[in-house]
Amino acid sequence: MEAEGKELRRGWTTGTCATAAAKAACSALLGHGFPDPVEVTLPGGQRPAFSLALEELGDGFARAGIIKDAGDDPDVTHGALIIATIRRGEQGKGLRFSAGKGVGTVTRPGLPIPPGEPAINPVPRQMITASIAEVAGETMDFEVEISIPDGEALAQKTLNPRLGIVGGLSVLGTTGIVIPFSCSAWIHSIWRGIDVARAEGLTHVAGSTGMTTEKAVQAHHNLPETALLDMGDFVGGMLKYLRKHPVPKVTVAGGVAKMTKLAQGMLDVHSKRGLADLEALAKVAVEAGADAALADEIAKANSVLHAFQLAEAKGLSLGNHVAALAWKTAAKALQSPEIALEVLVFDREGRLVGEAPFMPSDQTSASPLPDRNRRT
């Protein structure tokens, strides 16, 4: 991985760290001591080794900890201490997982783990089970408690509270490896948000590109928190999942720059994927009623925001036309008669400056402009 000429380090998931800690603790509980470093097997077959940051052997339990290294990824859990405590369990009951301090508990349906269970995802559970089997053989009657001392505070910086995971972080990972600046983790969190909304029977969800638009769309439609999807730049990732897992009403909400990019056919609206085409925006302005002088100013504007300010100063409503084109791009990704799609455009203050009202997303040949804004 490289970014701007710098090679980026990969890191380890919380699931991998919990696995290494659990294996070391189980070894100590069985009288074999704490292996340091401790090796674990990842789903892809890799065998990384980890140094222990904590070792504790007590009456009926063993505890080990690993400091998580997320590499060069801006992960909120980078540097967190991941602890596994192993105790003997009831004979014949197999492995039982529990949430210690800083690890959340699932309270809502729709996630990979059912309500009432500790938020330790399926792949980390499988990895922990396999690693304990390496040291315990067929003797698998253990209680495995995973804790993250600062997890409850760190979880407030994640989507866990919205997804109904209370009390702390989730123990996550599908490959065991954190890829720096990975899109996949964000997109998967969007998918889980959709799963939760569907499980709760919600009929309307709204994906937003940022906090300002999220607050604005929530107020606009009076939506519950579980209907809000932190879509970020990944419009396509959200819409393609919704196409296979439909919700009756979907709102796409964003600021003027990102919705202009969506209007110009970009389903990933991150700045690294390209800038909005101001000359193309000037042509949209002409369709909205701009004269040649204004169109020329828009084409030469410093930014999309500047272009909107120029249009507004001349009394031209550019937002509805941008929303209509953005609707067409988004509708092509959905193309479902089961889903009514709406696009809302907000400025930096959260003021609504453009809208394409709800229409079935398979009607891509129709105009989503509000009647009052259609040109005759």
Rank of each mutant, 00 (worst) to 15 (best):
M359Q: 13
Q309F: 07
K23E: 06
D195A: 11
N373P: 00
L341A: 00
H270S: 11
A25D: 08
L310T: 05
N373G: 00
G110K: 07
K261Q: 10
F97H: 08
T260K: 08
R375P: 11
V205H: 03
M211S: 14
S365V: 10
A64Q: 02
T85P: 00
G65A: 04
R374Q: 13
G176C: 09
P35D: 01
D59A: 12
G45L: 04
A3W: 13
A333M: 06
R96T: 14
F346E: 02
A311P: 01
W191T: 03
G350F: 07
A130N: 10
H306C: 06
A301C: 02
G232K: 11
A3S: 14
K283V: 15
D36C: 08
L316H: 02
L325Q: 14
T14S: 10
S303V: 05
G94F: 02
L325G: 03
V106I: 11
D230H: 15
T329I: 07
L229N: 12
A276N: 05
A340W: 10
A331R: 00
V38G: 02
T41C: 09
V322L: 07
A293S: 13
A290Y: 06
E56F: 01
D233F: 04
S208I: 05
L57C: 01
P370V: 04
L239Y: 04
T226G: 12
I146S: 06
F50Y: 11
G201N: 01
R88D: 12
T226A: 13
D69R: 02
M266L: 15
L281S: 05
I179Q: 13
P35I: 02
A216R: 08
A299T: 02
T364W: 00
H188G: 11
S303Y: 09
I179E: 14
D195H: 08
I298V: 05
S361R: 06
P248Y: 02
S27E: 01
W186T: 13
E117V: 10
D36Y: 07
P124K: 05
E312Y: 08
T158V: 04
L52G: 03
E214H: 06
K332I: 09
G236I: 06
L281P: 03
L341C: 00
D150W: 00
V247F: 10
G15R: 01
D268K: 12
G58L: 08
A62L: 06
Q156T: 10
T226C: 10
L228C: 09
S365K: 13
V304G: 12
L325I: 01
H188E: 15
Q156C: 05
M359K: 11
L81D: 07
I190W: 08
I83T: 10
V196K: 05
A253G: 11
P114W: 06
W327Q: 05
G274Y: 09
L159W: 12
A18Q: 03
M211G: 14
H306K: 09
F61C: 04
A333I: 06
E349W: 10
C183D: 15
A280F: 01
E312K: 15
L172C: 07
R47N: 11
L318R: 08
V235P: 00
